[in-house]
Design a binder for these strands. Sequence first.
DNA 1: GGAGGCGATGACAGCCCCGTGACGTCCACG
DNA 2: CGTGGACGTCACGGGGCTGTCATCGCCTCC
Lengths: 242, 242
Amino acid sequence: MTQASARQRVLVVDDDPTVSEVVGRYLEHAGFAVAVVADGRLALDRALADPPDLVVLDLMLPGLDGLEVFRRLRAQAPVPVVMLTALGDESDRLVGLELGADDYVTKPFSPRELVLRVQSVLRRSSAPLAQAQGTILRDGDLVVDIAAHLVLRGGKPLALTAREYDLLVFLLQNPRQAFSREQLLKQVWGWEYADHSTVTVHVRRLREKVEPDPRDPTRVVTVFGVGYRYDPSPVVSAEELV
Amino acid sequence: MTQASARQRVLVVDDDPTVSEVVGRYLEHAGFAVAVVADGRLALDRALADPPDLVVLDLMLPGLDGLEVFRRLRAQAPVPVVMLTALGDESDRLVGLELGADDYVTKPFSPRELVLRVQSVLRRSSAPLAQAQGTILRDGDLVVDIAAHLVLRGGKPLALTAREYDLLVFLLQNPRQAFSREQLLKQVWGWEYADHSTVTVHVRRLREKVEPDPRDPTRVVTVFGVGYRYDPSPVVSAEELV
DNA sequence: GGAGGCGATGACAGCCCCGTGACGTCCACG
DNA sequence: CGTGGACGTCACGGGGCTGTCATCGCCTCC
């Protein structure tokens, strides 16, 4: 467990050799690189010298108390921890949860289940990015998260109304295309016939929130005599801007 | 699969030999006793003659329709069923879940994932005691222990009602996603059509218990004209707060 | 350069949507 | 049989959203 490798590394902290041996075997069989230590002091040293991807920590430990080990582990690094607790000991469990344990297994437990939980926690904690499953639209400093129904500009959330949001999304999804007001009314509003000025006004309000300079729009551009078009920011190097 | 044994027995129903062979191998490797049949008629006969602990059922079957097989299986005995469905075919999946399938996997799927689901379903249905372990959801000072059906905030247990709990768990499991009231009614309440205000009111009550300042919600955020969204506390460094 | 037309702007009224308080019912428990 | 909590529903009120219009400015074409 000294070198970075494709395999994820798990540190098992338990003073009972029977437990740690079985657990270690199962984890290795599941493809993990496993290290085992028998008390809290060693666990801290080991974790500091060679940080694992996850720690399986028995709360009942000789010497240093398990919760204390847990606290210090977390003080060193935000490593995911799966706790092993006695069935009855609810207080420890609560304290552990509060301190930030990622999961727990009560004794007696099936090694297979422990492996499942370890995998599950690693999956959860290693892929917070994959959570952003929804489609993301992007243009310059503009970011639209469809699933979240959220618009960011320069990292800050933008307060768009429902209509403004719909309009922006439609335009972003169809960049570099000019649309007449009729088309926009039909596509965004779902209306067949209506007052064109509705579109005009909403475009204005959208510009005020989306354009660097609303009076000289670079994103939502008017095509005189026709309608509007979304122009994505050109990908330019700095000198081209001069 | 004729005698009761320590190993749990799984019946795989799929007409594609490639699929059933791979699935069978993985399940056996995971310690299950596996039987494979290729069509629905045989599946029913087999299940009746020698009831398995769980059935893996492909919904796309020659001869008897998969859903029909499912219905008759359940008519015979309350055996847990994990469905295999085509990715696009949401209608079948919904019907299956509606009828009481315990889990589903969409094609293409990884055999390992299927094994995990099979194990998970069996654990759920066969070992209510082992449920004393739990997946933990977390956001800031909020901690939800699914197995314990327990919610902590700042270390103190929170008195949520059943609906409030369901709502919170659903939102926590789907953070950063905006849901309409219809969607929430369907997902959390299991209703098809109902009064939207039901959602509104429950959101309010949940906020009163979960939000630091219920009148300025930061967790359960309303998306005007759309619905609600759960925003996890941002993980920020100090300087970003300025 | 001037006239006509189109788009931008500011303002406003109606309305929709959300939050809130309150009430009736159902169910569990004493 | 009475009590209390949970749940769904409703009426009310306020604030924001939305569509419309009049006016002004600017683009286009002659």
